[in-house]
């Protein structure tokens, strides 16, 4: 059984905007899954439908086999959501917010107290437990959002831009924590604008654009399949260069940039051809990234 199963999911808003055009998506249990896409692609709408914030137009979605409409209570109990926008209650202390949050999911007061304190310590927020959210920094608020998603110990975490607006140090700390949670067996669905984040954390990704899934698969495979590596060769006399038509290359000053999928296979041939006409002074290999693949797939 998959953690999340989405089939033919459509959403058309009252304004007529077709946010989702019938997407299909399966997310395996225990995976760290990245849902990537430009602004307005349909990421938050998808998450909204899964969690009950957005009414679907048609199609189906299941969380651990529970239908999000017919078995909505069981489906929602299986999910912890950290939404993109900070949405903290202003009336209560941080600890009280988290205790209420746990209670909304059926966690007893005694267990909730124990769990909330553990999470606050883990996220380095225990010293702020009696403060209200008004007195917290942006990074702290972001951590509270993540804490809220964890207090009922759900098997699936949905994190919508969990590191948006936080500094590098905190981002790395959160990455480590999210990895730890994933290693402990939690399935994580992540949306992010930081492609580096997805590349580092996600074992599988889907790229969504204009309400359609345009690519889904293992992160490494997508990078390999979609984007090209670049070999930069610095030469003495670039004007003399003659390379066979097999290569996609460009020359800027005295640097030849050759794009290829198979660096190891092609590099010997490239060096041989260039050395026939000029002398090589330096070679630099730039591996393709998820960002390249993302930009290529979304035509950015």
């Amino acid at each position: 059984m998959n953690a999340i199963e989405i089939s033919s999911l459509k959403k058309t808003y009252d304004t007529g905007d077709e946010a989702l055009k019938g997407i299909d998506l399966n997310i395996k249990k225990g995976s760290f899954f990245g849902l990537l896409g430009p602004n307005g692609a349909g990421k938050t709408t998808t998450i909204g439908i899964l969690t009950g914030l957005v009414n679907k137009t048609s199609g189906n979605a299941k969380i651990l086999g529970y239908d999000i409409i017919n078995d909505f209570k069981l489906a929602r109990k299986s999910i912890g959501l950290s939404p993109q926008e900070i949405n903290l209650d202003v009336f209560f202390s941080i600890r009280q917010i988290l205790l209420f949050q746990a209670g909304y999911y059926g966690v007893t007061q005694k267990l909730a107290e124990k769990r909330v304190d553990t999470i606050l310590k883990k996220l380095d927020l225990y010293h702020k437990k009696d403060e209200t959210s008004r007195h917290l920094s942006g990074g702290m608020k972001r951590r509270i959002q993540i804490a809220k998603s964890l207090v009922h110990d759900p098997p699936i975490l949905i994190l919508d831009e969990p590191t948006a607006g936080v500094d590098i140090e905190l981002r790395h700390m959160l990455w480590d924590y999210l990895k730890e949670l994933n290693n402990s067996g939690k399935t994580i669905l992540l949306t992010t604008h930081y492609i580096e984040e997805a590349e580092k954390l996600c074992d599988e990704i889907a790229i969504i654009n204009n309400g359609e899934i345009i690519k889904q698969g293992e992160t490494k495979s997508i990078i390999k399949e979609v984007s090209l590596n670049t070999i930069e060769v610095e030469v003495d006399k670039p004007s003399n260069i003659k390379l066979s038509d097999d290569f996609d290359f460009s020359i800027i000053d005295n640097i030849i940039k050759i794009q290829t999928k198979e660096v190891n296979k092609e590099i010997t041939k490239i060096i041989k051809e260039i050395e026939q006409t000029t002398t090589i002074s330096n070679i630099n290999i730039i591996n393709s990234s998820l960002e390249d693949a993302f930009l290529k797939l979304t035509n950015k």
Partner: peptide, 18 residues
């Protein structure tokens, strides 16, 4: 209104409550 304005009504809407 306050919960809508500050968006923490979402906590209630996504909770397993009818």
């Amino acid at each position: 209104m306050q919960a809508k304005y500050l968006r923490f009504i979402e906590d209630i809407l996504i909770a397993p409550l009818s």
